Computed example of a mutant assay.
Amino acid sequence: MRVEIWTDIACPWCYVGKARFDKALAAFPHRDEVEVVHRSFELDPGRAKGDVQPVITMLTRKYGMSEAQAQAGEDHLGAQAAAEGLEYRTRDRDHGNTFDMHRLLHFAKERGRQDELIQVLYRANFAEERSVFTEGDERLVELAAAAGLDAEAARAVLADPDAHADDVRADEREAARLGATGVPFFVLDRTYGVSGAQPSEVFTQALTQAWGERSPLLKPVGQGDHEDGAACGPDGCAVPQQG
């Protein structure tokens, strides 16, 4: 069975959603027969490569939030990440263009190291003090090497702006065809779709259903109490409300 996951490295709910999905997959009886493929989805495709801003500044300018609202959203996201055992810096993170990271992820897929690279990139973006946006290609080469990829080969990919660019654009077109307007977006065997960073039990349900049934394309999983999974889209990232 194949699970395709559309995500963006700049998406905090993708970071949280991956942890929740991984937890469900680890407990799934047929986990060794599940292939996970990470697909590209840029939340900010029009941003120039050198245009890097603090996350709080980006949120206030792009979505009209106050600084207090933006910071409260980051604090809520930090709490959600912590609940999944993830580190999350709620202060002083940067936001920028992720296209080169997506190109590297396609390169990593060819080398059988895609999941390792996306995990390294998530941690670098959300948990580490150093920015993934301000240090140029060498920072990404360093992270690729940390994921087990050949540094020189990764450097060559980054030096060629056409390398895997078509793969990224093809993923994004496919996301649009499938109706994905935000991420994370999970597609199981091109049969079931799960939108957002759903609780682990929803992913367990989806894996079980997709394993046992073959049905028309993209039957939604996670209705009822979990219908609206938190996600990031063109209008920003959903923020959990305090009870």
Rank of each mutant, 00 (worst) to 15 (best):
G179W: 14
V239H: 05
A24G: 02
M58V: 07
K109F: 07
G236W: 09
K219T: 15
A79E: 09
C232W: 13
F186K: 03
P29K: 10
A159W: 00
D189W: 02
Q209N: 10
E84I: 13
R39P: 03
A82L: 12
V239W: 07
D115F: 07
A19H: 06
V221S: 00
G73D: 02
R177G: 12
F107I: 13
S200K: 06
V239F: 07
V52K: 06
S195C: 13
W211P: 01
L143E: 05
A124W: 02
F133D: 04
V132A: 03
D228I: 15
F186C: 08
V187W: 01
R169D: 05
V37P: 00
L207Q: 02
V183M: 11
R177Q: 13
R89S: 00
H226D: 10
A81W: 04
F203M: 10
V183Y: 01
P12N: 05
A156W: 12
A81Q: 04
E33C: 04
M65I: 09
D115G: 11
E213K: 13
L104S: 02
N97T: 03
G46M: 08
R123L: 04
G236H: 11
G46W: 06
G229E: 02
G182C: 09
A127F: 01
V37K: 08
P220A: 06
P240V: 14
A127P: 00
A27V: 09
R47V: 13
D235Y: 11
W13V: 04
W6L: 05
K62E: 06
E152H: 09
E135H: 15
H226Q: 07
A159Y: 01
Q242S: 15
C232Y: 06
A163K: 03
W211L: 11
G196C: 15
E135M: 12
Q80R: 14
Q242M: 09
F107W: 08
P184S: 09
S40C: 05
S200G: 08
F28H: 08
D235A: 10
A26R: 08
F133T: 06
G243Q: 13
I5H: 01
E138Q: 12
Q69S: 12
L218T: 09
G73V: 10
E128K: 14
D94H: 08
Q69K: 12
R155C: 07
A231M: 11
F28M: 08
H76T: 13
A19F: 08
Q198L: 12
A124S: 04
E87L: 15
Q53S: 12
R2G: 03
D225E: 08
V132T: 15
E128Y: 09
A197C: 13
V202T: 04
